[in-house]
């Protein structure tokens, strides 16, 4: 962790304009903030896609009667996987924010099983990145959820801020 991390509430400053290595970014991301809290893990990536995982955990359950994982952590997983797929295709990190995200829950996740999210950036434009993803629990041919979303590229200025700073 570098010396600038104190300014960002313990999170290392993300270097901008550097070549993007999803595996390195993944390792860094999974130790901090929400991704660290829910226990997200980096799996693998390709030219325009990223695969992340979320092990089942009792405190992330949405239905105590069945033990099925809540959909919130699955959206977080798909949000991160789709977001990282843009940087994988771009070959570099650039600040972006989610414009919209739609998720279809095609079946309930199997209690106790790790959720895998595979996501790709299928169109990268000057200001918009179009993404889609699939969440499954072992067999991608039998998915749990499908996602489609759009990220907007934004200026670095104001993308991140000091946690706790006033509005």
């Amino acid at each position: 962790m570098d010396s600038n991390s104190e300014k960002t509430g313990g999170r290392p400053v993300i270097p901008q304009g550097l070549s993007f290595d999803p595996s390195q970014f993944g390792k860094f991301m999974m130790r901090h903030g929400h991704t660290g809290f829910i226990g997200m893990q980096y799996h693998t990536h390709g030219d325009n896609w990223v695969e992340l995982a979320l092990p089942w955990r009792e405190d992330l359950v949405g239905d105590p009667e069945t033990g099925v994982l809540a959909s919130g952590p699955i959206i977080s997983l798909l949000d991160n996987a789709t977001s990282m797929s843009v940087w994988a295709l771009r070959g570099g990190f650039r600040p972006q924010v989610t414009l919209d995200l739609r998720v279809d829950y095609v079946r309930a996740a199997t209690p106790g099983k790790t959720i895998i999210a595979w996501a790709e950036c299928y169109q990268l434009k000057k200001s918009m990145a179009f993404v889609r993803g699939i969440a499954h629990d072992g067999d991608i041919a039998d998915p749990v959820a499908h996602a489609a979303g759009i990220f907007i590229q934004v200026e670095a200025d104001g993308w991140a801020r000091e946690p706790g700073a006033s509005a």
Partner: peptide
Amino acid sequence: ADRAMGRPGFLHGGVIAGLLEI
């Protein structure tokens, strides 16, 4: 709380979606 943070200083988009769902 830190458990809700995405990019530094901001709520994670998945947390906002999770809150909306609940």
